[in-house]
Write a protein that binds this DNA or RNA. Structure first.
Lengths: 158, 158
DNA sequence: CCTAAGAGGTTGAAAGATTAACTAAATGAC
DNA sequence: GTCATTTAGTTAATCTTTCAACCTCTTAGG
């Protein structure tokens, strides 16, 4: 206990780490967003495209996609509607479960992905990955993975 | 160069680190947001309160506050209007520069801060700080600080 | 079977964020 | 001094996110 009321305040070291994480996560997202802007995509769009590109048949069930991208069903539904209007994906019915829907990459979506991915990777490298040594990357991963694990288990619902 | 078209794709290790960072940053924000909800505050509200609490006279110029919280002027202006309506802050004119405004913590804002801060710190500890060893914290900070530095310098405007 | 509960997904309204255009005051170059 | 720029901040319109209500289909229990 650090103080009379029992609160364990953060030490300077802890505070500095916390702020560093906070700042990096916000600044980085802004930067990546800016770098995608010339292609008419948002980070969110891009992440959907990645997930679909990496899936069999370029399609995923809406709920799986929501889980994978850490979004609520509602948000994903709106998001897919927008991307559908932009011609990047389309919805397709699921035969085996007639409540279900697939989000499916269109040709235009796939073409867009192929065109944009190299730029996005370059951006991730320039503003994050390439600023860290191999050891740092490894350490970072080993520190953060349990945290993600913890957060996913502790009331993981978005 | 990893592939014919010259793109340096991410290795498995790099990709894993990148995803870990992404996941932690999103899940963590969601969790903190949830933990503040019972007090009727958002992460954004809280960060404004912290900044004002730590400032002389519990006041800051709008632009300084915008810079400190990494928000656009417009967004901050809306944010402060909401917090003003909630009685947490008020705007006050600046004598020395008559274009300028201060955001000032009200008594209610200060009281709120005193009441909420211990819970917020506990939340940050539970979901982040206390999941990392002292060495990990130090390493994390040393890895991330240069990244934040880089991002701030490279077209830092929000 | 039939029904209650749960899962998959959408929708509309309200809240929050972004963009661009705008006012007013300060600065600085003649 | 005066005019063009820049800085501080707001506003209105638009887009995105969240929240709650809703509909449909599936599943489990009797």
């Amino acid at each position: 206990m650090d103080t009379e009321n029992g609160t364990r305040w953060l030490s300077d070291e802890e505070q500095a780490t916390w702020r560093a994480h906070l700042d990096v996560s916000r600044l980085l997202m802004h930067q990546l967003e800016r770098d995608l802007q010339p292609f008419g995509l948002t980070n969110n769009d891009y992440e959907i495209l990645v997930n679909l590109s990496e899936s069999d048949d370029h399609r995923m069930r809406m709920s799986d996609l929501a889980t994978a991208t850490l979004q609520s069903k509602s948000r994903l539904s709106h998001q897919i509607t927008r991307m559908e209007n932009a011609g990047l994906v389309r919805r397709e019915n699921c035969e085996s479960d007639r409540r279900g829907l697939f989000a499916v990459l269109t040709d235009h979506g796939w073409e867009t992905m192929r065109k944009v991915a190299p730029h996005h990777v370059a951006s991730v490298r320039e503003h994050f990955i390439d600023l860290l040594s191999t050891d740092e990357l490894k350490a970072l991963q080993e520190s953060l993975r349990p945290v993600a694990q913890h957060l996913r288990s502790t009331r993981g619902r978005i």
